[in-house]
Simulated assay, not measured.
Amino acid sequence: MERWQGKVAMVTGASSGIGAACAKALVCAGFVVVGLARRQERIAQLQQELPTRFRSNLHACKCDITKEESVNDAFKWTQQKLGAGVDVLVNNAGIIATTELSARQNTNEIRNTIDTNLLGTVFCTREAFNSMRERDVEGHIVIINSVAGLQVPNLGPNLPSLNIYPATKFALRAMNEIYRQEFQRYKTRVRITTISPGIVDTDILPTSIRNVVKDMLPSLTSEDVADAVLWAISTPPNVQVHNITIKPMGEKF
């Protein structure tokens, strides 16, 4: 990780769960981290969980990644605040609509899921890549995906439908390959990796559903996913880690 010391990493959805774990892990690995979230105050709380010597290297930036202008402003803020562009981007922000896909009056949930999981990733990746390309630097973009992007899990009648969520994750897998091809087309030193975890114990699900899932199925921790992010970006510059799939022991999918 020596080549990344003092470099800037940006993490979306950094206020909780996987995003918070990634932000903490990257700061402790020597990065200056910008955490994007609508709940900016949660990142300020996260700072207090860090060892004192690292706290000044975590910065909170309020951002709604579903809004293109908000994303653009976050990248401008990072450049102005830190005097540097983003070298590592972790696209983590994501949500799940838990109504049935075939149900009536679920349009807002579907749109919000697509806007967050797909368009948010597009907006952030576009800004990060072009900054890396213009500066001609080594860069790494990570997309937190899901095993639901590899196979649609059948959760059975006792758990809710995953709605449009798996479709967005399948799309992220396709986007990963498109980005890889585009980054090579311009002969950049930017790499792209997706990380596809199984069930992770986070608050992406409503508490009532989350408790049922925890009782029925094994799960990973957010720190497990953050470890995979660190491993991917620590590989040599000539190595393209295309996708990492991690599952909890005992998972039946």
Rank of each mutant, 00 (worst) to 15 (best):
residue 119 L to R: 11
residue 125 T to I: 09
residue 147 V to R: 10
residue 98 T to H: 01
residue 118 L to F: 14
residue 82 L to P: 00
residue 117 N to W: 01
residue 93 A to T: 08
residue 118 L to V: 15
residue 117 N to A: 07
residue 83 G to I: 08
residue 105 Q to A: 12
residue 94 G to M: 04
residue 144 I to V: 11
residue 85 G to Q: 07
residue 144 I to H: 07
residue 89 L to T: 12
residue 85 G to E: 04
residue 142 V to M: 03
residue 87 D to W: 03
residue 134 E to D: 13
residue 101 L to F: 11
residue 91 N to A: 08
residue 131 S to Q: 11
residue 128 A to G: 06
residue 103 A to S: 12
residue 107 T to P: 01
residue 133 R to S: 10
residue 97 A to N: 08
residue 134 E to G: 09
residue 86 V to K: 01
residue 130 N to I: 15
residue 98 T to K: 01
residue 140 H to Y: 09
residue 137 V to D: 02
residue 139 G to L: 00
residue 123 F to D: 01
residue 122 V to C: 05
residue 135 R to V: 13
residue 147 V to P: 05
residue 127 E to L: 09
residue 88 V to K: 00
residue 86 V to Q: 02
residue 104 R to G: 10
residue 117 N to H: 08
residue 130 N to M: 12
residue 102 S to I: 15
residue 80 Q to W: 03
residue 99 T to V: 14
residue 93 A to S: 05
residue 116 T to H: 04
residue 108 N to L: 14
residue 113 T to G: 08
residue 112 N to M: 12
residue 141 I to E: 03
residue 128 A to D: 02
residue 147 V to D: 06
residue 124 C to H: 04
residue 94 G to T: 12
residue 80 Q to I: 14
residue 143 I to N: 05
residue 80 Q to T: 15
residue 136 D to A: 13
residue 86 V to L: 01
residue 88 V to C: 02
residue 141 I to N: 06
residue 103 A to E: 04
residue 137 V to I: 15
residue 145 N to K: 10
residue 127 E to R: 10
residue 106 N to F: 07
residue 118 L to H: 10
residue 121 T to Q: 05
residue 85 G to V: 14
residue 142 V to G: 05
residue 94 G to R: 03
residue 145 N to W: 07
residue 102 S to V: 15
residue 101 L to R: 07
residue 103 A to D: 06
residue 112 N to I: 13
residue 126 R to K: 14
residue 90 V to R: 03
residue 135 R to P: 04
residue 115 D to N: 06
residue 125 T to V: 11
residue 109 E to F: 13
residue 86 V to E: 01
residue 110 I to D: 02
residue 114 I to L: 09
residue 101 L to W: 05
residue 99 T to Q: 12
residue 125 T to R: 00
residue 80 Q to M: 08
residue 132 M to L: 05
residue 111 R to C: 10
residue 106 N to H: 09
residue 79 Q to W: 02
residue 108 N to S: 13
residue 94 G to F: 00
residue 133 R to L: 10
residue 88 V to Y: 00
residue 136 D to V: 15
residue 111 R to S: 10
residue 145 N to G: 08
residue 79 Q to C: 11
residue 118 L to K: 09
residue 113 T to C: 08
residue 98 T to Q: 03
residue 138 E to V: 15
residue 137 V to E: 02
residue 105 Q to D: 12
residue 120 G to F: 06
residue 96 I to A: 06
residue 94 G to P: 00
residue 117 N to S: 07
residue 116 T to R: 02
residue 83 G to C: 06
residue 103 A to V: 14
residue 84 A to Y: 02
residue 140 H to T: 13
residue 88 V to E: 00
residue 97 A to F: 03
residue 108 N to I: 15
residue 93 A to P: 01
residue 134 E to A: 12
residue 118 L to R: 07
residue 131 S to N: 08
residue 93 A to M: 00
residue 95 I to W: 02
residue 110 I to G: 06
residue 121 T to H: 07
residue 99 T to A: 12
residue 123 F to Q: 01
residue 127 E to A: 13
residue 81 K to N: 11
residue 93 A to I: 06
residue 88 V to S: 01
residue 108 N to Q: 13
residue 83 G to E: 00
residue 133 R to I: 13
residue 85 G to S: 11
residue 89 L to Y: 05
residue 126 R to G: 06
residue 138 E to T: 15
residue 143 I to S: 04
